[in-house]
Design a protein around this nucleic acid. Structure first.
Lengths: 130, 130
DNA sequence: ATAACTGCAAATCTTTTGCTTACAG
DNA sequence: CTGTAAGCAAAAGATTTGCAGTTAT
């Protein structure tokens, strides 16, 4: 793996928030001003195929871009608040059970799972009409 | 609701497969040749906001477009086969339980849920290296 | 009347590709 | 050497928007 790619991987791993391609590029340029958009996209595609990162939509809460995060040991759900935009994560054994059940009942071989929820977080619920 | 919108809703409800905006437009034009792309997108946005349809990505198995389906009584998961492109649906009480658990533990008010899985269907597994 | 809906064309945004040069194993 | 990676610029694909005319309440 090249230096640029290692840089990108490091940024994704270290970031406290989920980055999209543009944000990732911007951060990477602080350390390597010559890095190009295409390199970012090509690297993301590669990491995705190798299963090193997960791609998220976060309910398209902010346009159609994709967000990325380093693959964790445990799959988790992302809950996106339509009002404040907060992203919360949620992992539980029930999720694992559900996956196991799906595999067992359908014979499907799971490569990637994405569970996303849109709604209103606890704080934002007060005052929401629906 | 206008005639055009009723037409679009009807098409979505009747379609056996998940349609993207372009496919929906094409079908709609058979009955109303003057209908425009913009109307399709605007109607989809409206239906989505009202919770009448769900928007799917189907793991971006075929580009970045979105697919739509009429909201069903029961949330279900979509499993997309990376090899043959088949889309399978999966609903179970475990999924309902997981949702209930998420609500209880996080206080999040769920508006939309999307559970998508990418991998290989039973038939396509034979011969896949990974 | 007033507000919502439509077509049309142009714009926007994100992501991808072709091509040539530069590296890495 | 030989294959993979990178930069650049242009293209592609999906979706959105401004505006002017139309329809519905």
């Amino acid at each position: 793996m090249t230096a640029q790619r290692r840089l990108l991987v490091g940024i994704i791993q270290d970031s406290p928030r989920h980055l999209d391609a543009a944000a990732l590029l911007e951060i990477a340029r602080k350390q390597d001003p010559d890095i190009d958009r295409a390199t970012v996209y090509r690297t993301l595609a590669l990491l995705k195929n190798r299963g090193l990162i997960d791609e998220l939509d976060l309910m398209h809460i902010e346009g159609e871009k994709h967000y990325y995060e380093a693959k964790t040991n445990r799959d988790h759900c992302h809950m996106a608040c339509f009002r404040c935009g907060a992203i919360m994560e949620y992992a539980s054994s029930s999720f694992e059970k559900l996956k196991a059940e799906m595999v067992k009942q359908s014979g499907f071989h799971i490569r990637v799972v994405r569970l996303e929820v849109g709604g209103f977080c606890k704080r934002c619920q007060k005052g929401v009409t629906s």
